[in-house]
Simulated scan of single mutants.
Amino acid sequence: MTSTATINYVEFAARDLAATKAFFERVFEWTFTDYGPDYSSFSAADAGLDGGFFSAPIANETSNGGALVVFFANDLDSYLAKVVDGGGNIVKPIFEFPGGRRFHFKEPSGNEFAVWGHPIENFGSN
């Protein structure tokens, strides 16, 4: 039975909607559907959860109490390189935590995200 109280959609502000879309297309291979010049959605098929970006002069950061959305990657180091090559800014380099490793980054509009992976000794396992 499907609950009606589950997380179904997430929206983020984007200072530069075009740059944010280009970043997620390049780094995470997402596709977007535009709804006018100030809104673009992504799908759960690409991102794991439906959502979108809207034009606004603000950004989501953990330093101001924002929620942290965390991606999973089997190869954390390659995703760090992809984020940097795609124009992301690393705000916390790879660090270990109980159960894995992760890094934090900001995409071109300034929203903070993280990517985590298994500890080195468990690399490749799910």
Rank of each mutant, 00 (worst) to 15 (best):
A19I: 04
A19P: 05
T20L: 09
K21W: 01
K21E: 15
F24H: 15
E25I: 02
R26N: 08
V27N: 13
F28D: 07
W30L: 15
F32V: 05
F32P: 04
F32N: 13
Y35W: 07
D38E: 10
D38A: 08
S41K: 08
F42S: 04
A44C: 03
A44H: 03
A45H: 05
L49D: 01
G51Q: 06
G51H: 07
F53P: 02
F53D: 03
F53N: 04
F53A: 02
S55V: 12
P57T: 12
I58Q: 12
A59N: 09
N60L: 08
E61I: 15
E61R: 15
S63Q: 05
N64R: 13
N64V: 02
G65K: 09
G66E: 07
A67M: 06
A67R: 09
L68R: 02
V70F: 01
F71M: 01
A73Y: 02
N74H: 11
N74V: 09
N74R: 14
D75C: 01
D77N: 03
D77W: 00
A81Y: 00
A81N: 15
K82D: 14
D85R: 03
D85F: 06
G86M: 12
G88Y: 13
G88R: 10
N89T: 15
N89H: 14
P93G: 10
P93S: 11
I94Q: 04
E96Y: 01
F97R: 03
G99P: 13
G99R: 08
G99V: 10
R101H: 04
R102H: 13
H104F: 14
H104Y: 13
F105H: 03
K106V: 01
E107P: 02
E107I: 03
G110W: 12
G110A: 08
E112S: 06
A114C: 07
P119N: 08
P119A: 04
I120T: 13
E121N: 13
E121C: 06
N122H: 13
F123R: 09
